[in-house]
Design a protein around this nucleic acid. Sequence first.
DNA 1: GCTGGGAGAGGCTTA
DNA 2: TAAGCCTTTCCCAGC
Lengths: 249, 249
Amino acid sequence: MQLSQAKQLVEASISRKDLCMVVGTCFVDYWGRAASKLPKGKRLLLIKGDNSFAVHQNRLLRPTNYMMNARINCELVGNNLVLSAKKTNPKEEIKTIFYSIDAVHSHEMGSSADLRLFGSERELSNELMQDLGFLEQGLRPLNQEEVLRKGLVDILAEDSFGRMVVIELKRRKADYNAVQQLKRYVDQVKKIKSKQTRGILIAPEIGRHSLELLERYGLEFYSLEFEIGNPKAKIKGIQKKQKTIDRYF
Amino acid sequence: MQLSQAKQLVEASISRKDLCMVVGTCFVDYWGRAASKLPKGKRLLLIKGDNSFAVHQNRLLRPTNYMMNARINCELVGNNLVLSAKKTNPKEEIKTIFYSIDAVHSHEMGSSADLRLFGSERELSNELMQDLGFLEQGLRPLNQEEVLRKGLVDILAEDSFGRMVVIELKRRKADYNAVQQLKRYVDQVKKIKSKQTRGILIAPEIGRHSLELLERYGLEFYSLEFEIGNPKAKIKGIQKKQKTIDRYF
DNA sequence: GCTGGGAGAGGCTTA
DNA sequence: TAAGCCTTTCCCAGC
């Protein structure tokens, strides 16, 4: 395919905010947050209507080079067609130098309705909040604006002995971060309220080392089974997966 | 375009491990680690030679739905062409139901040479390791296989007083995680070696709260300036951005 | 505009 | 395979 013809097709496609796909042999040079060079090879350049710019190889989900909200330029330089994407703050540039172009595909895509996702952490949190007794008898939620509003903790509650209970919910396997995040919150609540404060981590599972750390901190872990469905995620079961830690209180 | 014809093109493309692009109007249903429904609309389905499967809208870099190493199936169901991707462990499924197809593009992509990236954390770490005196006089690297090999710490060193020094390097702004990661490593090294151990965090910058936490832990922070170039990332300067904490030792 | 934090994170390396 | 960790993380929601 003629590079000059490709140039016209690409420019027209971009100006219409179509989905633009350029397939050809190119070299890619990136400089910005890091730097990279992608050797000459057959690639797909995907330019979307929001000026996102992505160079894909024929493997992996993620593009090898990419830029969001790019200023896109297309020009003939010598015997090559150079498609570049630039951005400031941080300053970044991708240059894709096409030696030959197999095809330029342009498609009008209309406006896109949004994805509706179920089973988010927020949704599970709301679900759990509905019935904390499910977790432990006598546990009741506290709507402490100053703590909850700033997203400091997922759920703040009080147990039957009047102790504060900070609950952190993770929809995926809990790791060190989850444990230490909970530790920080417990420490802060303890300090603000000047009351005994427990910390409960709830997740589908937890790594062995993370569990050890959690136990050293005197925190509690419950394993959560949840069910993903429509229109909501449902909590199926919850189980204490830990030796009792009442000795800490 | 005829759906039956599209089916043939897609199947042929997949069997050749070509890059396959399907543009058309579809509805997407996902169930697995979460659940989602993408309303009917014009989408791009990108199937790569490694069986990665991604549904793109005409915006954003990331696909709305995706699966790696999928078992891909293509069949006519009533008046629709259904392209689905399935996986076990965890069990997941994406169903894309095409009501109409604008185009199927297939391109032979050859094998792809790899991306060469500069300025990664690993590279900066190697660069810094070349001259630790740059950071502090008398500091020298220890190549403790048992500690370094498992990626426990970025750099392990010994200072002029014979104290162990754990160095954690971040190529981006350091956060709570970085501080607590360093804290964990320091604790572990201290335990293993039974020696006084310092912890140094090196990053371009650090948040105010993260710095406070770091200071409470008795750790040290150095701000790092680096320059990304070809063929290597270079460390330009390093500077202690903290009141001296010798009182801790 | 900058920032903190979640994500179906992705993807890599080593145990 | 599982665990840990880096990423040009991407992306959104809050300020």
